Amino acid sequence: MNAVRVLIADDNPVVRAGLAALLTAQDGIEVVAEAADGRQACAAAAEHRPDVVLLDVRMPVLDGLAALPCLVPIAPVLMLTYSREDEVVRAAVRGGAGGYLVHGEFTADQLVGAVRDITEGRACLTTSAASALMAHTRARTPGRSLQSQHAPLQVQSDVAQSVSAGVDRARYGLSQREEEVMELITGGMTNHQIAAACFISEKTVKNHINRIFAKLHAANRSQAIAVWLGTVRGPVRHG
């Protein structure tokens, strides 16, 4: 089995050295390059073609968010930073980051696990990052806690929230759980990710999705999202 090849981008040399020492001590992980800013990270990624990029947010020359467009096409990007502001987390995920870990919210073993997971398409979020992304879902489903130390997510869009403002969704007749699942579908989650976020099985997720599609008169996710966001006219519930 080939080793997971990692690029570490952080402007703090002490942090870089610590991460490199931690990761290289693991079987099956190799640190192939380090970078002190976003521009160096882009150049190193193009040269070394890593399997994973660990990326800080606040760096000189070119910050992590600005570097995402050149890094994401090369390798999965795992944000590893002290920045926990909601808008920064959302911007990183919208930009294509596959995970977001905030220093102080994960253990060394969890970091190693996240590096391995992201290469297999399983993204990881620490608590404050998950809270930033799940805030609008919790607001729509009061009393439901979706906190998770490693809640896997893909991209969620603030644009979707603004488009859907004022849409009368009660007429679709979705249950509270079905509404919650539909919100996560709109956010770009896979069935596996929805199951993890809601603490239910993938089979249960599929059952919810089948019922959602029937109620929205949708044949697939794209059609369901269009109806849910109000970009196409949805069905009216009778009875």
Score class of each variant (00 low, 15 high):
residue 2 N to K: 15
residue 3 A to S: 13
residue 4 V to Q: 04
residue 5 R to G: 15
residue 5 R to F: 09
residue 8 I to G: 07
residue 12 N to L: 11
residue 13 P to N: 07
residue 15 V to S: 11
residue 24 T to R: 14
residue 32 V to C: 15
residue 36 A to N: 12
residue 39 R to N: 10
residue 39 R to W: 07
residue 41 A to R: 09
residue 41 A to C: 02
residue 43 A to L: 08
residue 44 A to E: 09
residue 45 A to D: 11
residue 46 A to F: 07
residue 47 E to Q: 13
residue 48 H to Y: 14
residue 51 D to R: 00
residue 51 D to H: 00
residue 54 L to K: 01
residue 54 L to N: 00
residue 56 D to A: 03
residue 56 D to C: 07
residue 61 V to C: 11
residue 63 D to P: 05
residue 64 G to E: 09
residue 64 G to I: 05
residue 64 G to V: 09
residue 65 L to A: 13
residue 66 A to Y: 02
residue 68 L to K: 03
residue 68 L to Q: 13
residue 68 L to D: 05
residue 68 L to Y: 14
residue 69 P to K: 05
residue 70 C to P: 03
residue 71 L to Q: 01
residue 72 V to M: 04
residue 72 V to A: 00
residue 72 V to F: 00
residue 73 P to R: 14
residue 73 P to L: 05
residue 74 I to L: 12
residue 76 P to T: 06
residue 80 L to V: 08
residue 85 E to N: 08
residue 88 V to W: 02
residue 94 R to M: 03
residue 96 G to T: 05
residue 98 G to W: 10
residue 98 G to K: 03
residue 99 G to I: 03
residue 101 L to G: 02
residue 104 G to R: 10
residue 106 F to C: 06
residue 107 T to C: 00
residue 109 D to P: 08
residue 110 Q to W: 06
residue 110 Q to K: 14
residue 111 L to Y: 02
residue 111 L to P: 01
residue 113 G to A: 03
residue 116 R to F: 05
residue 116 R to D: 02
residue 118 I to K: 05
residue 118 I to S: 01
residue 120 E to N: 06
residue 120 E to K: 13
residue 120 E to S: 13
residue 121 G to N: 04
residue 126 T to C: 02
residue 131 S to G: 13
residue 132 A to C: 01
residue 132 A to I: 05
residue 134 M to F: 14
residue 135 A to C: 10
residue 137 T to L: 08
residue 138 R to W: 08
residue 139 A to P: 14
residue 139 A to Q: 15
residue 139 A to C: 05
residue 140 R to H: 10
residue 144 R to Q: 15
residue 146 L to N: 05
residue 148 S to N: 02
residue 149 Q to H: 08
residue 149 Q to N: 11
residue 150 H to C: 12
residue 155 V to I: 11
residue 156 Q to E: 03
residue 158 D to P: 06
residue 161 Q to H: 10
residue 165 A to H: 11
residue 165 A to P: 09
residue 165 A to D: 08
residue 166 G to I: 13
residue 167 V to G: 06
residue 169 R to T: 12
residue 177 R to E: 14
residue 177 R to L: 15
residue 178 E to C: 08
residue 180 E to Y: 10
residue 180 E to F: 13
residue 182 M to K: 14
residue 185 I to S: 03
residue 190 T to H: 01
residue 190 T to A: 11
residue 190 T to L: 10
residue 190 T to E: 09
residue 193 Q to Y: 09
residue 195 A to K: 10
residue 196 A to N: 08
residue 197 A to P: 02
residue 199 F to Q: 15
residue 203 K to T: 12
residue 205 V to L: 14
residue 205 V to Q: 09
residue 206 K to N: 03
residue 212 I to G: 06
residue 214 A to N: 13
residue 217 H to L: 10
residue 220 N to Y: 14
residue 223 Q to R: 15
residue 224 A to E: 01
residue 225 I to K: 06
residue 225 I to E: 07
residue 229 L to Y: 13
residue 234 G to W: 05
residue 234 G to R: 06
residue 235 P to M: 11
residue 239 G to I: 07
